[in-house]
């Protein structure tokens, strides 16, 4: 009878417990032969290995498994587990003192030192007054150490922080970032947009206070900065 050699029916994989060999479909005797052939070919590689063998649905009896174990032992390979979907095979294996379940791999203990540097996000920083007719544009956040005068424009993909007076037009979250905020020591913009939602400053009364503008329930809400309610 012609038999096609199918080398891929034997899969060898390194696992934590040693090697796991998965046997594909096929007649036991022949696959056992080709397994041994493979091992002989790479004797050095297999020597001293701890082996788990997945035999699939095969029903194997004590004689088969015993032979297998002894032949492997000849090659200095320790067979420690037989994995099978067949209860008969499992029982046989257990009788021979072999494991039939791979131990549940313990979660790897990763002991890393606590990462104390925080990666952060892209932002640009300007230490100057943004005057009428000038425009600052960035995909990230924008930080201005200075005033934004009427007629000046700030356009950010992220948030905008102005350490100074803001009287120009400010757009934050232009790509639709609803979490973008705009804050300024004196937030009094000609127009404010966050993620496309437009707001106009009400008439200022009293002393300027640091304020934060953000979207709450689809509306731009401006809150006085308060160290307690952060």
């Amino acid at each position: 009878m012609m038999r096609l050699k199918q080398p891929e029916t034997i899969l060898i994989k390194g696992i934590r417990e040693g090697l796991l060999i998965t046997l594909g479909e096929g007649d036991w005797q022949s696959i056992f032969a080709s397994l041994m052939e493979k091992i002989t070919e790479k004797e050095k590689f297999f020597e001293g290995a701890k082996l788990a063998l997945d035999v699939g649905n095969r029903t194997l009896h004590a004689a088969d498994l015993g032979t297998l174990r002894d032949r492997l032992a000849d090659k200095n390979i320790i067979l420690w587990a037989i994995l099978s979907n067949s209860p008969v095979t499992e029982l046989t294996a257990q009788d021979l003192g072999l494991a039939t379940r791979m131990s549940v791999p313990k979660p790897e203990r990763i002991i890393k030192s606590i990462e104390s540097s925080i990666p952060g996000e892209d932002a640009i920083f300007l230490r100057k007054t943004i005057r009428s007719g000038f425009k600052v544009v960035s995909n990230g956040h924008i930080i201005i150490f200075g005033d934004v005068n009427p007629g000046g424009e700030i356009i950010a993909g992220g948030s905008v922080i102005i350490w100074g007076r803001c009287q120009g037009v400010v757009q934050a979250g232009v790509d639709g970032d609803q979490n973008a905020t705009v804050c300024a020591l004196d937030l009094n913009p000609t127009q404010l947009r966050i993620a496309g939602i437009i707001a106009i400053s009400p008439k200022r009364k009293g002393k300027p206070q640091p304020e934060v503008a953000k979207i709450i329930a689809g509306q731009v809400v401006v809150e006085t900065w308060n160290p307690k309610s952060r």
Partner: peptide
């Protein structure tokens, strides 16, 4: 004043 602001910016630039 708005125009002056623009001019000041251009002078700076």
């Amino acid at each position: 004043v708005r125009d002056a602001d623009r001019i000041i910016g251009l002078v700076e630039a």
